[in-house]
Amino acid sequence: MSEMLNSTSEAQGSTSSQSGRVDSINEYEKGTSLWSDAWLRLKKNPLALTGLGFLVFIALACLCTPWIAPYGYEEQNLLLGASPPSPQHWLGTDTFGRDLLTRILYGGRVSLMVGLIATSVALLIGVTWGAIAGFVGGKVDAVMMRLVDIIYALPFMIFIVLLMVVFGRNLWLLFFAIGAVEWLTMARIVRGQVQSLKEQEFVEAAISIGLSKWAIIRRHLIPNALGPVIVYTTLTIPSVMLLEAFLSFLGLGIQPPQSSWGLLISYGVESMEEYPWLLIYPGLTLTLTLFALNFLGDGLRDALDVRASKD
């Protein structure tokens, strides 16, 4: 008995440092063990851990690129031209004689940043918007979702070009613009989930306890809608990376001599027959990253599902 009390207070102590919030409900969230339980379960999933490890490795490598990269990203060697992998250039060079490894590392900085920021924007807006629309319902829901429909209907290219014209070419704007389009589907998914969840008696029980609407959304609805959200997020990250490549290819995103994985791949496709390594290595990097993301996403979804076995 006393042993269990101890472990309870221990669990609270260990997580309290994470939330410095003060109002009464947050104060009590220290005791919530959904996330710590999820972490325990995730630790037992080797595939998800491998994925996480790989992502951390790639992220660190890209972060430290300016210090570890063997060459500069625009350093040309026109005499060398496109050369296959060699001891000097591990992954070979492109037609301008630029080191491919260096360019992949620099490209990763852009691609990962797009993936992270645009997806976070999509997550934040999409989940909040969908949860509110689904929970409040009625006219609010109708207005909010019609707005989503309208933005859906706007041709994406025109939207982006307009933004570029008004605000000028800006990497951050690009991230924001992609995020601002990707949240629409997220909002629809979350709204559907919340609509079916709010009919359940535990939501009514939460109302009869006296919880506010916002607390019900945050504590009861969103945690139960997380499964599909995580799966869709792992699908969103690669799609925004490819979107960035597409926009850059059209001249709207980042410009040469800067690079991103998507750009490297699209240049690689052009010279696939003569210089296959220009396609293979950037393609491999992107593929491995996406694999890692999917493993991690699946692992997270299972870890957050408390109904999955606990042994």
Partner: peptide, 20 residues
């Protein structure tokens, strides 16, 4: 249906106490 499947029994029972 009346218990939140993602909350432990502790959290379910503590919620009204903390709220009020």
């Amino acid at each position: 249906a009346s218990l939140n499947p993602r909350m432990t029994i502790y959290d379910t029972l503590a919620e009204p106490l903390v709220l009020h």
